[in-house]
Amino acid sequence: MEFCDDCGSMMKADDGIWECGNCGFTKPKGDASEYTVTDDQEVSEVIESSGETSLPETNALCPECGNDRALWYMQQIRSADESETRFFICTECEHKWREDDN
C-alpha cells in the first residue's frame, strides 16, 4: 500500500506506477524487495520480556486465598455509556476476578 506524497490519499497501482485517485500524482513503483523483511531484520525486532508486569498494585482481598494485595487494571467491556470494569489479579495465587460499579 502506498500513500500520495502530495495529498496523503491512498494510491492505486497501475502498470508499474502508483497513481493517486484524488489529485492525480504519480510515481514509479519501487522494487518489491525493498518491502521484504529479511530473516536478520525479523530476528532484530524480537523484544525479550523480563516477565515482570507494569500493572499497579492495590489493597484488595482475594476471594480464593485471602491475600490482601492484587494487581489491577480497568477495561471497557460494556457499551460506551457504561462505566469501566475493574479487574484484579492476586499477587499470591494469581486468581483473577472483577468488580463492577453498581
Results as ranks from 00 to 15, higher is better:
M1C: 11
M1P: 14
M1K: 11
F3Y: 15
C4N: 02
D5K: 14
C7M: 11
C7V: 13
G8F: 04
G8N: 03
M10P: 15
M10V: 04
M11Y: 03
K12I: 10
K12R: 05
A13W: 04
A13I: 13
D15L: 07
G16M: 03
I17C: 03
I17Q: 01
E19V: 10
E19C: 15
G21I: 00
N22T: 10
C23D: 11
C23E: 11
G24W: 09
F25R: 13
T26C: 00
P28V: 09
G30Q: 07
G30E: 13
S33C: 09
E34W: 08
E34L: 13
Y35N: 15
Y35P: 06
T36E: 15
T36V: 12
T38L: 00
D39Q: 10
D40K: 01
Q41F: 07
E42H: 13
E42Q: 14
V43W: 14
V43F: 13
E45M: 15
I47T: 01
I47K: 13
E48Y: 05
E48R: 06
S49C: 05
S50V: 05
G51C: 05
E52G: 09
E52D: 04
T53M: 01
S54H: 07
S54Y: 04
P56H: 04
P56R: 03
E57W: 03
E57K: 12
T58P: 02
T58D: 02
A60D: 11
A60N: 06
L61S: 05
L61D: 15
C62P: 05
C62L: 00
P63W: 03
E64S: 03
E64R: 08
C65E: 05
C65G: 08
G66W: 12
G66C: 03
N67V: 00
D68G: 15
D68K: 12
D68V: 12
D68R: 07
R69Q: 07
R69Y: 01
A70R: 00
A70V: 00
A70F: 00
W72E: 01
Y73H: 11
Q75Y: 05
Q75L: 06
Q75W: 08
Q76D: 10
Q76P: 03
Q76W: 08
I77C: 08
I77E: 04
S79K: 08
S79I: 08
A80V: 01
D81T: 09
D81L: 09
S83Y: 09
S83P: 09
S83E: 06
S83R: 07
E84D: 15
E84Y: 09
T85P: 02
R86Q: 14
F87C: 03
F87M: 02
F88Q: 11
I89T: 12
C90H: 04
C90S: 02
T91Q: 07
T91R: 08
E92R: 01
E92I: 01
E94G: 03
E94Y: 02
E94T: 10
K96W: 07
K96S: 05
W97D: 09
W97H: 00
R98I: 07
R98L: 14
R98W: 05
E99M: 04
